[in-house]
Amino acid sequence: MFVFDLQATLPDFALRVALDVGRETLVLIGPSGCGKSTLLSMLAGIRKPGEGRIVLDDEILFDASARIDLPPERRRIGYVLQQYALFPHLTVRDNIAFGVRGIAAAERERRMRDVVALLRIEALLDGRPTEISGGERQRVAIARALVTQPRALVLDEPLAALDVEHRSRIRLELRSILARLNTPTIVVSHDYEDARVLGDRIAVMNLGGIVQVATSAELIRHPASEFVARFCGTNLVEVTIAGTRTLAAFDPWRAVLARTPSGAQHEFAGHVVDVARLGAALRVHVEGERSLFVDLHVEEGAVAYDAGDAVYVSVTAADLRPYLPPSA
């Protein structure tokens, strides 16, 4: 178990994050600059939090009030950075062996064989980090961390440095690697797609804190805020149901788009800001009081909405999912 509750004062805002990670992959998503990477460096012991504590497998790694602050080399947390930070002066083999130099040769060889097989990087061992591709570098960086048998693994934007054309394949590979580990893992990303594919659970973070922690299905069904809804590509609106104001989510493909008001009970005015094509669907992004997505079938696209068009988005009561706060 990897449990922490940390506070830090960053130049532009205060950060406060409390999470509880089991033997699972938790993906922390949020916009750039919301403090995700800072949080990981605090967990790894590179940065010092202001307040709080970090407990890993019943060992206290950090406790501000008890003045406990284990240095990174004693935390046994594997840390994989966005640019992978492979040592350029060492071969791939020596990179992987970096953290196991002190242990007995037989054990070291066994561990090396295991991670090399797990990550399928046998062919790369004698090369230099500069000679291999981005996806290969990622695997080497993960191998280098895993060979030390960390008690937890933190990955900072592991897919951000990759080309778009390889990203989805490498994402799936990463999922299968992470699925075979029995280690609490935190992956930081700004991309909901990464979170959906990799995460057993997803923690959505906005400037300074966690907004919601849930599975991807749950996030889409009941986003806790418009921010979460936008992040996972669903709609969240404020509506009156049975006399009470409440937040409710609805799927973009359930929404109806029109140029004139239909008089429906749940209708929202706005204007089109973008029209994106997703397979057989056109996703129309409407900005009004709220930011909304409406999916149209390509054939309906004959209506040809353009950026700037004034439109009305409506949804039937049956398609609305009222958001139930966790306390209720």
Binding site: A44, E73, Y79, L81, P88, H89, T148
Partner: peptide, 27 residues
């Protein structure tokens, strides 16, 4: 010398002195 390399060396078990000798100095 990219400081991330030193940070990673630390998480891989190197003391500050060790990281200096094995990463910073050679680079």
């Amino acid at each position: 010398v990219d400081h991330d390399l030193v940070s990673v060396a630390r998480t891989l078990g190197s003391t500050p002195t060790n990281a200096f000798a094995r990463v910073t100095l050679p680079l």
